[in-house]
Design a protein around this nucleic acid. Structure first.
Lengths: 261, 261
DNA sequence: GCTCGATGTGCGATTAACGCACGTATGGAG
DNA sequence: CTCCATACGTGCGTTAATCGCACATCGAGC
């Protein structure tokens, strides 16, 4: 049946492309066939088209993501004016706290890093970068995002089969729901040992773009926030950064033809 | 005529998506129609499909890139293990030099930032971020990339109509060609006032991934490299970082199922 | 009230996409 | 060396997805 509002081939091609974002590295066509469920001939055609369009590059008998995909991200970040507006703020906060600081939002049922900064004294890195994804239920970032998302999103997140990331990962929906509500009420979220053992995160809200909430978050070893005074310091710094980054959704809408083309 | 190796609809959809990476912000359908040259009904179907797939979000009467595109970039960066392997190195170099340092590669006929770091004392920022693009001919990054690219790429770059970014932008093909050859011969590239007035850049080669060269680059005010000793210092730091980042193409290929899904 | 541009829709013609089936190349095992 | 399993490339008939014109509606601006 033909549909005037949906291009099936495009959607399939994007599905194929998405196969490469989860399992990074080289993927062979049979692997993509397995993962996507499409016919072999279809996968072949889509992969070749993605290659021709520059999104995939051949490597041996498989394909790999091309830097082309960065250009799309660059468009999104340019839209936010990330390089000018958020990077300096994140860097300052990271330096002040001597902790990694990140700006994140929600993509489907995951939290996703939009930008991040780490202090010069980079003791430990979790290997996260722009575009890295985190679970919504078991991180401070994720819970703070859920606290600012529509109820159906929260329900959808809670409805998913619970995953234990650490030994103390909370899996009880009621407890998780209350953690989200607490985050909403107190205006920040803290999570310990929920995703990465020995790690803890703190997140505070920033503005939003459309109906997409943004949060600022920081990560440290689990006992970093034990002292209430230390937690206060972190919260203050994050909130200050949040103010400076400002209302993301409310930048000048008029200046379309900015920058050098 | 049907083609077993090409899905036209997918390619068109990607073209539509690409319309959003150049001119950031909200685009209305008529604008996309104009830019892409496709039929109005086609653009409509493709935009709606891109929205349904999560790559675009509606805003008012137009569309905007969704954070979904960051996930693709995240896949690419995870492939490089950017968060763990290159971020710390860039940060250290940026701190040591007190200058912005970036890892870049080539996407089509542009240089593109893969990752970057800025020192804590972020005096001036050019507003560049992951995915930002720069011209190949008029930047140190670009020329160093060309110096390591296949000859046909160089010719293609030189064949394009020359663009003047600054008053002293070089437009003579012969001079540009020799600048690229110089970069190849001496193993680094320096450019002053070529793209941004008052700015200068230095770039050195890093490994490559497949046939894609990578370079490390740094930017500063134009007189920062006047003193030969200062230039030496910068080159040493960049080369050191280049060594540490190492052969990007030669990381362990076996560890596919790494990380937590 | 009129005009112009944007948007949504109906529908017929076209042809692009699909996927089965066949032949080939590769590469590992015995 | 042979055999087998797997991946790859291709031909082609069928199907229906895509295309793009045409019409209708809506809202803003003059």
């Amino acid at each position: 049946m033909s549909d005037r509002t949906f291009a099936a081939t495009l959607a399939k091609g994007l599905d194929v492309l998405a196969c490469f974002e989860e399992r990074a590295g080289v993927q062979t066509m049979p692997e993509v066939v397995e993962r996507s469920g499409f016919d072999r001939a279809t996968v072949r055609r889509l992969c070749l088209t993605l290659e021709a369009s520059g999104y995939l590059v051949r490597e041996g008998r498989g394909f790999r993501l091309a830097p082309r995909v960065l250009a799309l991200a660059g468009g999104y970040l340019a839209d936010l004016d990330a390089g000018r507006r958020v990077q300096p703020v994140l860097r300052e906060a990271a330096e002040a706290l001597d902790m990694e600081v990140a700006l994140a939002t929600r993509d489907r049922m995951q939290a996703i890093y939009v930008d991040r900064a780490a202090p010069a004294s980079a003791r430990v890195t979790l290997g996260l970068s722009v575009g890295s994804t985190l679970p919504l239920l078991h991180t401070a970032v994720g819970r703070m995002l859920l606290a600012r998302s529509a109820p159906d999103i929260v329900e959808a997140a809670l409805a998913r089969p619970p995953v234990r990331h650490t030994e103390t990962s909370e899996t009880d929906p009621a407890t998780l729901r209350s953690a989200i509500e607490t985050a909403r009420d107190q205006g920040y979220c803290i999570a310990r040992n929920a995703f990465e053992p020995g790690a803890a995160g703190v997140a505070v809200p920033v503005g939003s773009l459309g109906d997409r909430p943004f949060v600022l978050a920081t990560t440290a070893t689990v006992n970093r926030f034990d002292d209430p005074k230390a937690l206060d310091e972190v919260l203050n710094a994050l909130r200050h950064a949040s103010m400076v980054v400002g209302r993301i959704g409310q930048r000048a809408e008029g200046d379309t033809a900015s920058g050098r083309g």
